[in-house]
Design a protein around this nucleic acid. Sequence first.
DNA 1: AAAGAATGCGACTAATTATTCGCGTTTGTC
DNA 2: GACAAACGCGAATAATTAGTCGCATTCTTT
Lengths: 217, 217
Amino acid sequence: MKRNLSRETRMALEPRKQPRQERSSKVVDRILDAALTLTREQGTKTPTTLAIAQRAGLSVGSLYQYFPNKEAILLDLARRWLSSFPEVIARRIEVTPPTNRDEFRQEVRKLFIDTSKIYLENATLMPVIEAISGNADLRPIQDEYDEQIIALYAAWLQHVNPALEDKIASRLGVLMMDVGHACRLVGLKRDRKTYDLIEDDVERMWLALVTPYLNLD
Amino acid sequence: MKRNLSRETRMALEPRKQPRQERSSKVVDRILDAALTLTREQGTKTPTTLAIAQRAGLSVGSLYQYFPNKEAILLDLARRWLSSFPEVIARRIEVTPPTNRDEFRQEVRKLFIDTSKIYLENATLMPVIEAISGNADLRPIQDEYDEQIIALYAAWLQHVNPALEDKIASRLGVLMMDVGHACRLVGLKRDRKTYDLIEDDVERMWLALVTPYLNLD
DNA sequence: AAAGAATGCGACTAATTATTCGCGTTTGTC
DNA sequence: GACAAACGCGAATAATTAGTCGCATTCTTT
């Protein structure tokens, strides 16, 4: 039975039940591991329930003990990543805003380093993120997170320059996110040295993007 | 019957036969129109053959008179877009290379304007492009085009600065393409005024990305 | 060790959808 | 206007896959 995720099930992406016995929490881990490995192997295509079960050494039925549907498995993998973004950006808004060009440059750099760290720490998850973006059912959920992240980038910009108009802040926010994301995905597929070079590239681009809008002397 | 596009059919994405009678070339147009409209309506998800046929006022069977499979329809829509990129970049390599910072800035601007034009002229196709990227079967084909485009960006960079190492050129090429693509997709979803502002943003970013690697006085 | 709860199983169901094929209809040609 | 080729049709086929359900096994508790 093909489900209509968009309707009822969207509400039900939470784990179906908590594992009560020790063996079963290991099972949950095995399911998540299998889903991750398969997604990495297959590139964009999301793995089938059967494939996940087999790779985890389980039967399909067991999947549904802990997850209400296939999407929930992938989403579980992505959630930590998706939610660490808002946290990190929010933390960069708490500090006192910069007052001159040099301090400002420093603030960009800090935000930049912090976000980069998220990508490096979650490098193995990237194929899942890409798969989610390419999946018609999961895309909307990621979009919700993206909205949040954009809003926070915009808030950060207005924190750095309180005079910045909302409209401009949100436009620059989107671009910061998308440019950062696109470039870092490229970077993570290359070797570490290239990743670092791309990081420098992104930093220059961010600065070029944002500087004209921060009328600092 | 679900087909295995990746194997045999990949070779057979060409139209199955040329329309011989007048009515039928109109049919081909109707099919393409329907596919385009539906893709635009549905966002990421590619339309089903039945939906395309119905929207075109045809039966499924008629689709297969002219297209070997569903993918070929979408690809037909995307092809003009995909192939106009190489043309445009190649044309920018034919001119005499710039010799000073100002001429160089001009060259970036020209490449930039030309590529922007492709996006504006094909704005209605963008949902198809996005759908193709999200489709496991079609992605590889787009990737081939992307390779080509990246190589041309790299060639352009080396045309502008012949001393530029291959490795650096190809890295910057990828980033130019991806940054341009990501930002312009955002731009086309906004109003024209915002699109133009984003264009300025992209130009600044391109310049910031590329300038350090072009040791001009 | 026995009961009952939790977990695991996998054949089965059912939805979805790409593609085919034989037949009826339209069109172009002489 | 007759003949053949081209076109159009849509029911039927077949592949794929998400999710269920009743039974089997394992664990926990007393």
